[in-house]
Simulated assay, not measured.
Amino acid sequence: MTVIESPTPLSIDLDARYTLARAVAQQAGERALQMFRNRAALEVEHKGLQDFVSIADRDVEGIVRRAVSEAFPDDAFLGEESAAGVSATLSSERVVWVVDPIDGTSCFLNGLYAWCVSIGILVDGEPLIGVVFDPNSNELFHAARGRGAFVGETPLNASPSCHVREGLLGVGFSHRLKPEAFMPFLGRLLGDGGMFIRNGSGALMMAYVAAGRLIGYYEPHINAWDCLAGIVLVREAGGTVNDFLANDGLLRGNPIMAAGQALYPVLMTLVEGPGEQS
């Protein structure tokens, strides 16, 4: 059993949380898959431009929240569907479960298969556990700090690519930003001979970076529940990720940039532009 000791009486049992995260991600994903197959009956609301919520999101988040509350009542919980009501002091909690019950809701509602359940766990402000479950392919991506990343029992390794011409780059964009914040990057990427894919699920594409299926991923603004699990996966697969949690990224979101170690500085140049690296 891996335990993180605390100066307070509370100790953190990572093994138990890792086990629960994997189990509840699959349980929640199986419920989501049932609803996906009967999605015509779902009630859907519009939260904003390109932003939807359905009874499925709330139902699936409830499955995870209840499991966490029963097993670890002192742990904090940040879910996409309940984020509006969280306290600004959430970042100071010892353990925070960061959950997107259905990442890729638009794909889910439109009968596309690019959606998943994403669960990340922060301990003392550090992402230590990441689980992404894709019910459609029955793939469970999972990682814990210092233990490596896996899909099922198979170890994952980020791509060794050195240039954007050597594979597909995942990208994401939402209308929280103006298109002008994204288009220069795309121009530089295509100008260097690269090609991109956007499947509608940031969590799933981060898992694909960890698996070496994508050479990297970039999105100019993403929410924590969409990427916290992926951050652990990519780092444990030997890749590099920017400091997403800087400047209250947990509650405000931030840019995300992830790639294999060799490609990461190349990707940074494309994102920031020549001569703009800090």
Rank of each mutant, 00 (worst) to 15 (best):
R94W: 05
Y113R: 12
A211M: 05
A21M: 04
P101R: 00
P274F: 08
L251C: 01
V209F: 08
F244M: 12
R188P: 00
E272T: 00
W225P: 00
A67F: 06
N247R: 13
G146Y: 00
V131I: 14
Q277N: 09
A23L: 14
G212W: 07
A210E: 11
F108E: 09
E236K: 05
V86N: 08
L270C: 07
L14V: 13
A67T: 05
R252K: 15
R165D: 00
G249F: 07
G48L: 02
F173A: 10
P9A: 03
D57M: 01
C227T: 07
V132N: 08
G170T: 04
E219I: 14
G79I: 01
L250F: 03
A114N: 10
A203Y: 02
D192K: 12
E126N: 03
G62M: 06
S106V: 11
G260L: 06
I256S: 03
I12L: 12
A149N: 13
A40T: 14
A149E: 15
V86M: 04
G152D: 09
A144K: 11
A76R: 07
A144F: 02
A224W: 07
T269G: 06
V117Q: 13
L228R: 03
E5M: 10
S92F: 06
D248Y: 04
D51R: 11
G125W: 08
D51N: 12
L250V: 05
G200I: 11
A259E: 11
Q50I: 01
G104T: 12
V232G: 06
L245H: 11
D243Q: 12
P265E: 04
S278V: 14
R58D: 02
T240Y: 04
S278W: 14
Q26I: 14
R22L: 05
P274M: 12
L267C: 04
Q50T: 14
L189A: 05
R22V: 04
G249Q: 10
G273Y: 02
D15W: 02
R213W: 02
E180V: 15
L49N: 13
D248P: 04
G125L: 10
H46R: 15
I55V: 13
A143V: 06
L228A: 06
S201L: 10
P135C: 01
K178Y: 06
A246M: 13
N136D: 03
E30I: 03
L169Q: 05
R213Q: 09
Q34L: 10
Q50W: 02
M1H: 10
A32M: 01
L78G: 08
P179N: 15
P127S: 04
L112Y: 09
P274S: 13
R37E: 15
G202V: 15
A88Q: 12
G48M: 04
H221S: 12
A83T: 09
P73Q: 07
V86W: 02
L168C: 02
R165H: 01
V151A: 12
Y217V: 03
S118W: 01
L122I: 09
A21R: 03
G260I: 06
M257H: 03
